[in-house]
Design a protein around this nucleic acid. Sequence first.
DNA 1: ACAGGAACCTGATAGC
DNA 2: TGCTATCAGGTTCCTG
Length: 274
Amino acid sequence: MPEMPEVETIRRSLAVRIQGLTIKETTIKLARLIKWPTLHEFSASIYGSTIIRLERRAKYLLFYLDNEKVLVVHLRMTGRLNYVSEGKPKDPYSRIIFHFTNGDSLEYADTRTLGTLYLMPATELNRIYGLISLGPEPLSDEFTFDYLLSLVLKRKGKIKSLLLNQKAIGGIGNIYADESLSLAGIHPARVACTLTVIEVEKLHSAINEVIKKGIEEGGTTFRDYRDADGNKGRFQQELTVYGRKGDPCKTCGTDVMRTEVAGRGTHFCPNCQK
DNA sequence: ACAGGAACCTGATAGC
DNA sequence: TGCTATCAGGTTCCTG
């Protein structure tokens, strides 16, 4: 479900709620979502720990605990994190619940159950391959024009595949890939290494602009994304192509097309994107 | 080394 | 109404 702007919005809304709270017991309704360690160790290690801070790396959330451990959560397609005040109704797809000593709880809910949770010593986070192998993320100092150019020049695959490749760039998903390519005027199926320097410049600033705006607008609620307090995002109002199949392009009026690129539903304006 | 496709899951919606 | 097909914001594993 969520991409970098959605995960960042969840982080911001959740951090102010949970920092300093202490976890008592954990209710685990779907154990297979916990990838490490064993069920017993997971519950035992987290019991009595206090959340010091909440960080994000690309689409991963990292809950730093006062016992030198880190709870790592990846929401995949439909994961949600709900801060639930005492006595409030629970999400029907609630899978794992962390109960705090103040009576409130943090609920991990997930319709399609593809999400993943880990509890790792802070010194062993490098054992999570998807986390350690992440490329630089948009808006960071490492994500420079030169970096993107060097990446693009050596790739023979489609440009959209590159944007979705988390080892190349961390944090972009299907919505923001389509929106970035739309803003840059580049067709998603273009072979990466055929892009001109000017096009790479446009793409570099388009990615940063779209991700920045996405965060400012609190993410995109296309279906069921919500922040930790249950609020919807606002970026869906700004979408130029994603989810707009058959609707007129906001620039030229041509019907927005939907095809499949890199195995994903892909939206673009056939007139504006070459 | 890299690209493409299937697999993992469940539910919502569109079309007949 | 009810059935079927398609689609879904992601990642990983396998194959070629």
